[in-house]
Design a protein around this nucleic acid. Structure first.
Lengths: 232, 232
DNA sequence: CGCCAGGGAGTGGTCGGACGAGTCGGGGCG
DNA sequence: CGCCCCGACTCGTCCGACCACTCCCTGGCG
């Protein structure tokens, strides 16, 4: 029962040991998304370190989005394969990323996933896109609601690409943009026009026209046209 | 001097408070890359939480790659704007990302940055690419050295895109691939052929031919052609 | 019999203190 | 003058305790 697993090569940091043990269990399939981890006190005993060390390791994993803890309930393996966007936000502040760079990164990613989505989108996913597009047209007078549909539309596209890695990256970068836009409501352009461009993207995906989907997504996304200042 | 900064809205988690305080100082420019943070005990007193809480917050930031601690020396703001790739590796193991998906993500990113690099690469960056290409030709009999030049070539391309966000994402995804390849040396294809494709990419970038750079990068990157197994 | 309020056990969150381990610089010794 | 050792400083780990929160289960009430 004991998984002390001494030696551990040359690196014997207690907190790191915790991460490695759990990582091993994850990679071996013994820990699956949604699973609940043993209590910290029990983990400490099993691994052979103190509870503070266990907590340190769990906190690292939590910061990476691998686990999430619920006070009073337990620690669980994350069920949404979502990379946390806070790191990017912090790095943005640290190294002075500009809005242009953020837009550009989003462009590269979204255009790519739009093409893949046109190849592979399922009927259900296409229906979900249509739902969000109609939602956008229905809320052209409510910027807040409009933004929600906007976010969900792009998220659906990312899902439909069939590539969870790209979907995570898109989510990470886009959340930066949407947070930025939430602070600056309403946007300059007419919401009706924006909804129309989304409709065009949707049509291209529905027609499984890869090139058109890429092109429509490309014209939709804000060009780095002299955006005002640094990010945030 | 005290920055207790009570209230803090509705969320009063001690460890989170530490992250927010430091984040604020980073965003306000009071903390810059390479700077050394105050000792944990002093931070604890200044923020008004216990040292374990400070340690918890710092560990979160460390896991995100924002700070790094050196035993016996201190905690420093990270100087390399690099997103850590370990989170992606863990998520890959967790959610069963396949090699195809990894290749595909890398394709989207690398093709994008290749196009940007063709637009913007400076003379020095182009020279650096040439250096790596010649290095690859010179080490076609040494897979290990060849791989090193390969990595550096792609890193130079990413840098030359002028977009640190994209460069970080490329680095994050590519490091997964290179780690995978390091375990599986040597690759199936002839190294000489690979070096030639890199040379073609280099020529396109040097000529500032965006479309050709994208095309050459596209043909260079391994197509998702029935790669064997899960990403491990 | 069914519903709901209460309590208790289990869990993570925080705290203070203590000691070990690593780093670094300065002062003493050769 | 140069080397080495030592001590101050810092992070790393550990312990024990208590608090806050969640969840389930029990018992009483309708």
């Amino acid at each position: 029962m004991t998984e002390a697993r001494e030696f551990r090569g040359s690196d014997a940091a207690a907190a790191e040991l915790v991460v490695n043990v759990l990582r091993g269990q994850i990679e071996r399939g013994q820990l699956r998304p949604g699973d609940r981890l043993p209590p910290e006190r029990e983990l400490a005993q099993r691994i052979g370190v103190s509870r503070p060390s266990v907590r340190a390791g769990l906190r690292s994993l939590a910061a990476m989005g691998v686990v999430q803890t619920r006070h009073g309930s337990g620690t669980y393996i994350a069920d949404t394969p979502q990379l946390d966007s806070r790191p990017l936000g912090l790095l943005a502040a640290l190294h002075g990323f500009t809005t242009e760079q953020m837009f550009e990164a989003r462009r590269v990613l979204e255009v790519g996933v739009a093409g893949l989505a046109a190849e592979r989108a399922s009927a259900e996913q296409i229906a979900a896109m249509a739902e969000e597009v109609t939602g956008m047209f229905a809320s052209v007078d409510d910027p807040e609601a409009f933004l929600r549909h906007d976010i969900r539309f792009h998220r659906t596209i990312a899902m439909a690409s069939g590539n969870p890695i790209l979907a995570s990256l898109v989510e990470m970068v886009s959340s930066l943009y949407f947070e930025h836009r939430r602070r600056n409501l309403p946007p300059g352009r007419d919401l009706r026009e924006i909804a129309a461009t989304h409709r065009a993207i949707y049509h291209a995906v529905r027609a499984h026209d890869v090139e058109r989907a890429r092109r429509e997504m490309s014209v939709h996304l804000p060009r780095p046209d002299g955006s005002p200042v640094a990010l945030r």
